[in-house]
Amino acid sequence: MFTMSWPPEISGCHVIGESTRESALRDIIIIGSGPAGYSAAIYAARAELKPLLIASSVEVGGELMNTTEVENFPGFPEGIMGPDLMAKLQAQAERFGTEVVYDDVVSLELNGPVKRVKLGNGDEHEAATVIYATGSAYRKLGLAEEEVLSGHGLSWCATCDGFFFRQKTIAVVGGGDSAMEEATFLTRFADKVYVIHRRDTLKASKIMQQRAFDNDKIEFIWNAEIAAIHGATAVTGVTLRDTVTGEERGLDLDGLFVAVGNDPRTHLVHGKLDLTPEGTIAVEGRSSRTSVPGVFAAGDVIDPYYRQAITAAGSGAAAALDAEHYLAALGNPAAAEAVLETEFAVVN
């Protein structure tokens, strides 16, 4: 039996009733427009929960917008361009009634039965549940020169900026899949691409490693980190420090691309949701339930290990199902029906 009532009690000047609930209090707000956010929206919209998805103002579609060919998303045997995949996910979410807003969240109130989400344009939205799927942001090297030289030969986006390094000598820092992808992509333009990695083995998948090893334009510099970036108005080179011997040496470069990993984007929920030692949002077991009832998290922001488009998408679907269960327990009729349908499908 349900002990809580639907709609949840709202404190303050709100009138609770059928008419205002329609306009003011939503079932679900989803924050983030990557594979996790859109997958959550597809599930929630198909459950007739009319989700509102806050897509951000300039990072709509998330990290895949800055990639080229995506070859490992199931269902696309020929591969698909990252931006095309995101456009398809958005179209699928909108087809079932997701409302997409192109703005940034500036603050959140997550405690209590009504969650409030404030946007850059001043609008405030309220919902019984929030799915937080803000992904991760590029990690910086932590050097003072980064601010000044960013956009002047120092870049975090090979697909955006590689074009400007035709016949140049450049380097990619990092040893993961994204570093290999960037290095391989950059050989389309540059004459020479160094890969600078602080260990002597790569974290990247075998296929991506092999592609980089097979490329004549790519040369690996092992056990090295960037001690300094040179250049007053544009990158002219770097100082490399050997991570084993500590020796330093210079390397002339026209450009430096950084692919040293990502950090979960949690700044809006610091002090509001529990985090893990890795800095991701803590969730209960294999669920998407955060430390605050009614707030769910999905995708890279909860995942320090896999961080794939497909794992984020799966995580988004799980978050929508968890939110449905939560809403159903509050007595939300659409959610209750959606939950029954899921359980019926499992039993049979």
Partner: peptide, 14 residues
Amino acid sequence: WAEWCGPCRAVSPI
């Protein structure tokens, strides 16, 4: 800007 630049397309309406 360029056609192939995702952030360019995102900022265009702004």
